[in-house]
């Protein structure tokens, strides 16, 4: 029997078609790629209040009420806090403007909200009883027109404080809103 003795030839694949497709894919992914900003959540569990007419204030002694009022433009006009012992006003100013891309943008004033955080911290420090820990709750009573950015800033102020080393000191996790729409 005669064996065919041929020289071993190098097998060459035609890569052109694959490279075409691969580049198409690459262009598709590059074009559709979009860097999205990181987003975070404030979690609020808020069931509908029981309709038995009982005031929530009677049930929970550790309730801090935070009221926000708006001016005509929807900016924050006043913050008052009440832990059951009478309302107390937080000093303003509550907002300022910063220059951004050539336009003035209204931003909440950090100092006023820092005093809100301090107030909450004082309340928590005064009421901590190691034998019987009661979770303090914050109820927001916010005027209809207050811009949402102030609401978020207020929620942020009561929920925690960023320490200089970057860690977060947690303050209040139970937050609810008082419904003003019903009057």
């Amino acid at each position: 029997m005669l064996l065919e003795t041929s020289e071993p030839e190098e097998i060459k694949l035609n890569m052109t078609a694959m490279i075409d497709i691969v580049f198409q894919l690459l262009v598709f992914f590059v074009m559709t790629f979009k860097i999205v900003a990181m987003e975070g959540d404030f979690n609020i569990k808020m069931p509908l209040a029981a309709a038995d007419g009982q005031s929530i204030d009677d049930l929970l002694p550790d309730l801090i009420q935070v009221s926000l009022e708006a001016d005509a433009a929807g900016n924050l006009a006043s913050i008052s806090v009440d832990n059951g012992g009478g309302a107390q006003a937080i000093e303003g100013p509550f907002f300022g403007t910063v220059e951004k891309d050539g336009t003035a943008e209204v931003v909440p004033n950090d100092q006023a909200f820092a005093s809100l955080t301090e107030y909450v911290e004082r309340q928590l420090a005064g009421e901590t009883n190691p034998d019987e820990p009661v979770e303090t709750e914050v109820e927001f009573d916010i005027a209809y027109g207050v811009k949402y950015l102030y609401t978020v800033k207020a929620i942020e102020s009561v929920s925690g404080r960023k320490l200089p080393d970057g860690s977060v000191k947690k303050l209040i996790s139970k937050i609810k809103f008082r419904d003003r729409s019903g009057g």
Partner: peptide
């Protein structure tokens, strides 16, 4: 306006949705 957010929240509550993330 925060009132609109609250209105949306109470609409959710009417449908028994109560787990919110802002």
């Amino acid at each position: 306006a925060t009132g609109l957010v609250q209105k949306l929240i109470s609409k959710c509550q009417e449908s028994e949705l109560e787990n919110f993330s802002l």
